[in-house]
Design a protein around this nucleic acid. Sequence first.
DNA 1: GCTTGCCGTTCCATATACAGAACACTTCAA
DNA 2: TTGAAGTGTTCTGTATATGGAACGGCAAGC
Lengths: 183, 183
Amino acid sequence: MPEDKPDRTGSLRTAVARRITALRQEKGFSLSGLAARAGIGKGTLSELEAGTRNATLETLYALAGPLGVPLTGLVGDETGRSVSDGVVDARLLTVRLHDDGGTTEVFWLTIAAGGTRTSPPHAPGTVEHLRVVRGSARVGPQGAEQPVDAGGPRSWPGDTVHCYRSTDGAEGVLVIETPRRPA
Amino acid sequence: MPEDKPDRTGSLRTAVARRITALRQEKGFSLSGLAARAGIGKGTLSELEAGTRNATLETLYALAGPLGVPLTGLVGDETGRSVSDGVVDARLLTVRLHDDGGTTEVFWLTIAAGGTRTSPPHAPGTVEHLRVVRGSARVGPQGAEQPVDAGGPRSWPGDTVHCYRSTDGAEGVLVIETPRRPA
DNA sequence: GCTTGCCGTTCCATATACAGAACACTTCAA
DNA sequence: TTGAAGTGTTCTGTATATGGAACGGCAAGC
């Protein structure tokens, strides 16, 4: 299959294609099975996953249901508030406010390869938890950073000066728990 | 103009239509002006905004640029789709696709007090990680559930039948990692 | 009045996304 | 072997999304 299209939106197309394929396989569906569940032709899905088709909104919506993701999960060019300084990018996924006044924030964290970032203390009692899913990093109170990689999560107090660093780059989920509302 | 379509995705269509119109007017663009900026036919945009057309991904992407929003801003959150059965509510926060073909999904999980839920196996090699921030739960392969509370996270294989249960209710962050699909 | 220049809508010919059939291939059981 | 039941890909006729042209409406200038 020659791939010599001008490729203006081609990258988007292949991105969506990869997303669909990944989600389908994750759910354990066959191509034919997903097509049937979504109520679309299997040829349609085949070419969609091959990136040779420019799907309509209707088709994508039909696929989103069985795949168990919102439409944004398919077209997903990620957006949302993100704090980035070139080294650490923290994209806020959600904030939960609890009855006791505490809060839980969930971020998708990306640390650039070779980068180091120092963060000022948060409110007293704050705890940070990082689970790395790709790459590896060293995190924790300044001077006492601990390694963290895909092997397991790491937690550290967030109410002191703390560092994020990575030599080979890292991605993961950062959870920040604040026990009570800051005064 | 027959308006007697079954209208299954009609609501989605009109939702997108309203969004485009609102964003266009917010930006102060005329319909023709936006069509020109996006490089699409003005007839296309007219019918799109009228909700009588089922746009392709390419068309929507072309519009997203001049409107200054990511594609997700057009297709809209719709629902932060949550899979809920009355016991476990899993709200998808993000899906990450990695270069090696693996995926990482992040959910905000709520387990109702006194509830138990059994989940069928996911793809081979899938691993689930749960960090509870409120309440406590027991999770893991069926028959081998382990307690998990605010004290620390718990991980277990997701490719076998597994359970979520909680006596007093629980909330937390669930990370599902799916490895690269073996051929 | 008659332009000129926008606006948004409606029409048209063409390109293409669609569902489904036909296909080649693999696996598995008789 | 043979067949049946899967898989994903390619083909085909139809439906429709597309860009662009034609259209009518409206306002400002001549």
